[in-house]
Design a protein around this nucleic acid. Structure first.
Length: 931
DNA sequence: GTAGGGTTAG
């Protein structure tokens, strides 16, 4: 009797407690607790369990724990209740300890833990518990799979996810809505959108959860348009649009605007604001404006649409605001570089009692960086008490974006002292700083660290490595890393193509461009800039024009770097009017554009125009830099304006505070040399800080050759023998000077000296654009091997007629043997052309042809053969594109200046840094034998 | 008694 009464009492109390749990009424529950104690019911396990649950539901974890600790007897439910309470309160470690110590577990114990770990972003731990559960012989339920599938999605663990899916089907649990949605969500999160859609289609009654999962999955895989359609279908199909769906669709639209989507779908950007307003209306209609997460998504979208007015408006009318809302606003202003507004918001939020968190500071850092105030960013960074890796990264990338590479590297050192470990972003930023400073050794260290941390296969890190190695001169290493990459995006391709362009591996650049388009990667302005620069290096005008056309269609034409590259390309192809047209059409110009145009005039022998343009530039905001002066000084020397060169040289030092580099001195020596002011040039060299740099002596020697000054030429050559013993240039130059004077004995003496000392003339390469293909020719290489390779590869070989006898007779006696060989080689190339299609030969083609070949004599010889238009020969006797290449190398490779100047000016034979195995691998290469 | 889809940053 007594027990029956107490049993009824207990049931009554349990029911009352359940009411308190449902309504989270703390006070009433506490009164019940008091009642339980007073009537000595505290030994009842069921009541004790309910009390644990009740306190947990009110967020009173401590009380929960107290009840549990004082229970005289406990069962599995009691343990599950306290574990659940800890999970609810976020004390996962505590929950785990309790789990480990409980005498007997059941499926619910596992499910509770799995769910909690999965929801708190500890997906791997959640899976570990799942595997443990199976090992201990517990059968997973639909509750288990709902969490486990979600964990697989969070880990992007497609394989584990598939295994779970299979197991679900095997157990026949695949008809549960939660599990079905779990499967869809898992595939969507893993990026396997086709599987997600298939799983979705197999659901008999999809609900708002299923639809939202697919929608987000579509957006994450750049199918923004389809994601929008999904939302429309959902709306029309009468499926409930809840707050999660609203928040998600706003995120989808925001994605379409923030440039994370391929360019063709970017038109969403234009209408995103409109879409935003439509969903905004829906939010109001459904009464969801009270949900912070929905309104936060809304202000985020307005912010991304650069519609800060509406963003502020929503913010002002929000019923509830949290830190995230403030952060979104700050990021919105940061994105448009309004750091003052962002800082003002920081003050406002603190005034309203909100404590800025890490995201706030990162947003502020971004705002300051964007507005260019990197010192302010650093100040904010210093105020942060314990910056996380993300904040360090934000600061590092701020420095890197502004070109403060040294600071970035220094900051990284500090980061290490603080024991903050780098991640992929850190390494990528660091690599780009190494690249900026050409710190190959440091870059290699970063490579080693990346490899150890297994980041070297990461898309961003690997692209950074490719860029670092190629910009630091290790193009083959760059290529190896590129080849080993598992996935490649447009940035990776751009890095590689930029490397090829930089190293004058233009044919590789073209091949890669084709390949990347075949793989469906859309080129960006960086791609085009590299490619156009490659065209420029080859003087490949028709390819250049084609690319120009594609650029105009693609909309990259207004890019400042693409524009500058086009100017360079046209100028190098001798098409100065078109270069100027590009320059005039540019919506904005920077110092690079000006330099490129001035340089273009200079290299095309339009010295005065270059100087005039330089004067125009001085009237604008843009300040000339070191390179501007190289261009304009080159112009002076080519135009024979030695005094002007000296005047500008002084201006540069005095007015613009620019320290003259070897290149500037070289220009001055060249200008004086061409003007036959050789003694003056010599005196100047002696006074120069860089008088031991071989290049200046080479230029002087070149000038001596033009003006037949044997004494000074000998002196310069002697100097070069000492400074650069393996350089063949002084021997060739000197020998050619003697040859020009008919001093054949001296010629053979120099040749003998050269061979005695083991100096070998480097090979030169020539190339030609013909029938829309760029063909490269290698001098002094084994013609037949390449020829055979071409046939093996199914490339139609081009016939080359060798008419040695004929040439020897036609040019007559008097020229040295070496000259015959050169002419013979050149004519080999010429015959190739004339044999194929002499009539269609354009002036540009011819310019391309001779740009790679030899001496003044030869140029004139060929010029009269094909009636080359008069204006293409400049006052110095060198063809336009020839000078262009000379200058282009000065621009990029200081080390090659010496060889290229000589090579092109005199036919010494040293050429660009092309390694022969690479060249012979080119499919469309032809080589011409010497001897 | 335990479950699924959502907001800010690099």
């Amino acid at each position: 009797m007594e027990t029956r009464i107490s049993h009824a009492r207990v049931t009554q109390l349990v029911n009352l407690l359940q009411c308190c749990i449902d309504r989270k009424t703390h006070l009433s529950g506490k009164i019940l607790h008091a009642l339980i104690l007073r009537h000595d019911f505290s030994s009842d396990i069921f009541l004790g369990n309910k009390l644990v649950e009740f306190y947990a539901s009110c967020g009173k974890l401590q009380s929960s724990r107290q009840v549990f600790d004082h229970m005289p007897r406990r069962n599995t439910y009691s343990w599950n209740a306290i574990i659940g309470a800890c999970c609810k309160g976020g004390l996962l470690r505590e929950a785990r300890n309790l789990f480990d110590g409980m005498p007997e577990r059941n499926v619910v114990s596992y499910n509770t833990l799995i769910s909690a770990f999965s929801r708190n972003d500890f997906e791997q731990e959640a899976l570990d518990f799942y595997y443990l559960m199976k090992m201990e012989g517990f059968m997973p339920t639909h509750f288990t799979f709902a969490s486990v599938l979600s964990a697989c999605g969070g880990l992007k663990g497609l394989d584990q996810g598939r295994q779970c899916h299979a197991f679900v089907t095997k157990l026949g649990l695949d008809d549960n809505t939660y599990v079905e949605n779990g499967v869809v969500g898992m595939y969507a999160k893993c990026g396997s959108i086709e599987d997600a859609i298939q799983a979705f289609n197999e659901i008999s009654h999809p609900n708002e959860v299923s639809c939202t999962s697919v929608m987000s999955g579509l957006a994450d895989t750049d199918h923004v348009e389809e994601a929008l359609q999904m939302f429309r279908k959902m709306h029309e199909g009468g499926i409930r649009i809840d707050q999660v769906a609203l928040s998600s669709i706003l995120g989808v639209i925001a994605r379409g605007v923030s440039g994370e989507v391929d360019p063709p779908k970017q038109h969403l950007g234009i209408s995103a604001n409109l879409y935003g307003q439509q969903v905004h209306t829906l939010v109001l209609k459904l009464g969801s404006e009270s949900d912070v997460r929905v309104t936060n998504s809304l202000i985020d979208l307005y912010g991304k649409c650069i519609n800060m007015t509406d963003a502020e408006l929503v913010f002002a009318t929000m019923q509830e605001v949290n830190v995230v809302s403030w952060n979104i606003l700050i990021a919105g202003y940061g994105q448009i570089g309004q750091s003052d507004k962002a800082l003002e918001l920081l003050e406002r939020m603190q005034l309203h009692g909100f404590k800025p968190d890490e995201v706030t500071y990162v947003g502020l850092l971004g705002a300051c960086t964007k507005s260019g105030d990197i010192e302010a960013a650093h100040k904010i960074f210093c105020q942060m008490s314990n910056p996380s890796r993300i904040s360090w990264n934000a600061m590092l990338s701020g420095y890197c974006q502004k070109g403060n590479y040294g600071e970035a590297i220094e900051l990284f050192r500090q980061m290490q002292f603080q024991d903050v470990f780098p991640d992929r972003t850190t390494l990528a930023v660091l690599l780009s700083s190494c690249t900026g400073l050409w710190l190959l050794d440091f870059g290699k260290q970063v490579h080693a660290v990346s490899t150890r941390a297994l980041f070297h296969v990461d898309l961003f890190v690997a692209s950074g490595l490719v860029d670092m190695y190629s910009k630091c001169g290790k193009i083959n290493l760059a290529k190896t890393i590129f080849d080993r990459m598992k996935e490649r995006d447009v940035v990776a391709w751009n890095s590689m193509m930029g490397g090829f362009a930089l190293h004058s591996l233009s044919l590789e650049a073209f091949t890669f461009f084709k390949q990347m388009q075949e793989e469906g990667i859309r080129p960006t302005q960086f791609t085009y800039a590299s490619l156009v620069s490659s065209c420029a290096k080859l003087s490949a005008l028709s390819q250049g024009r084609q690319i120009h056309g594609q650029i105009s269609k693609d909309g990259s034409i207004n890019d400042i770097y693409v524009g500058s590259a086009l100017i360079d390309m046209y100028a190098k192809c001798g098409n100065i009017e078109e270069a100027r047209k590009c320059f005039d059409n540019m919506p904005t110009r920077n110092v690079i554009s000006w330099n490129e145009m001035i340089h273009g005039y200079a290299q095309n022998g339009c010295g005065l125009k270059a100087i005039n343009l330089f004067e125009d530039m001085l009237k604008t905001e843009e300040k000339p830099d070191s390179i501007t002066f190289i261009s304009v000084l080159t112009a002076c020397s080519h135009a024979g304006l030695a005094d002007m060169a000296i005047k500008l040289f002084d201006l540069m030092k005095v007015e613009y505070n620019l320290e003259p580099l070897v290149d500037h001195y070289t220009c001055i020596i060249d200008a004086l040399g061409r003007a036959n002011r050789l003694e003056e040039a010599e005196t100047l060299i002696e006074k120069m800080p860089c008088k031991h740099d071989p290049i200046v002596w080479e230029v002087l020697l070149g000038a001596c050759k033009i003006h037949f000054n044997v004494d000074l030429a000998k002196k310069a050559a002697e100097k070069l023998f000492l400074l650069d013993p393996q350089n063949s240039a002084p021997y060739v130059l000197l020998s050619n000077l003697y040859a020009a004077l008919g001093r054949w004995r001296d010629v053979s003496d120099v040749r003998k000296l050269m061979s005695d000392r083991g100096v070998v003339k480097d090979r030169g390469y020539s190339w030609i654009e013909f029938k829309n293909r760029v063909q490269a020719f290698m001098v002094d290489d084994v013609f037949m091997s390449v020829h055979n390779e071409a046939i093996e590869n199914g490339i139609a070989p081009v016939t080359i007629k060798l008419r040695r006898k004929c040439i020897t007779r036609s040019t007559g006696p008097g020229l040295p043997a070496i000259m015959y060989q050169d002419i013979y080689k050149a004519l080999g190339v010429f015959n190739l052309l004339s044999h194929q299609d002499a009539n269609s030969m354009t002036c540009e083609n011819m310019m391309s042809l001779i740009s790679g070949i030899y001496t003044n004599v030869l140029v004139q010889f060929l010029a009269c053969k094909i009636n080359l238009h008069e204006h293409t020969i400049t006052e110095t006797g060198l063809p336009i594109c020839l000078q262009g290449i000379q200058c282009s190398n000065q621009y990029l490779f200081r080390k090659n200046v010496r060889s290229s100047v000589l090579f092109y000016a005199e036919g010494g034979g040293r050429s660009l840094e092309v390694d022969s195995p690479k060249l012979s691998r080119m499919t469309n290469v032809c080589a011409i034998t010497g001897n």
